Amino acid sequence: MNALTWDQREQIITLLAEATADPTLRAVVITATGKGFCAGADLRGAPAAAPAAAPAGGAGERVAGDVARMIRLGAQRLITSVLDCEKPVIAAVNGTAAGIGAHLAFACDLVIAAEPARFIEVFVRRGLVPDGAGAYLLPRLVGPQKAKELMFFGDALTAPEAERIGLVNRVVPAEELEATARAWAERLAQGPTRAIAMTKQLVNASLDTDRATALAAEATAQEINMTTADANEGVASFVERRTPEYRGC
Rank of each mutant, 00 (worst) to 15 (best):
G132W: 03
A162W: 00
L104N: 04
P192T: 08
I120R: 06
E178S: 13
G143T: 06
K148I: 05
T193I: 08
A117S: 13
Y136G: 00
A156C: 03
G99I: 04
L177Q: 10
K146C: 05
F123W: 15
L157Q: 04
V172N: 11
L138T: 07
A189H: 04
L157Y: 02
L141D: 00
I100T: 10
N169G: 14
K148L: 12
E115D: 13
R140L: 12
A117L: 04
G143D: 07
F119V: 03
F106D: 08
F106K: 00
A113Y: 08
V111T: 11
K146S: 08
A181R: 02
R182T: 14
R125M: 08
E149W: 04
V172G: 10
R140I: 02
R187M: 15
A179T: 11
L128S: 06
I165Y: 00
D109Q: 10
T193F: 10
A98R: 14
H103W: 00
A174C: 06
E149R: 05
R182L: 14
G191P: 12
A113P: 07
A189I: 04
G127W: 10
P173I: 08
I100G: 05
K146N: 06
A162P: 07
P173W: 05
V172C: 10
A133F: 07
G132M: 05
E176R: 13
R118F: 00
L128D: 09
T158I: 03
A105W: 12
P139W: 01
A162H: 02
E161G: 04
D131I: 12
Q145W: 08
A179R: 12
L128N: 06
W184E: 13
R164T: 11
V122Q: 06
G101T: 02
D155E: 14
R126C: 09
L157E: 02
V168W: 06
G191M: 07
M151Q: 11
L150S: 00
G99R: 01
E178G: 11
G99D: 09
E178R: 14
F106H: 11
A159N: 11
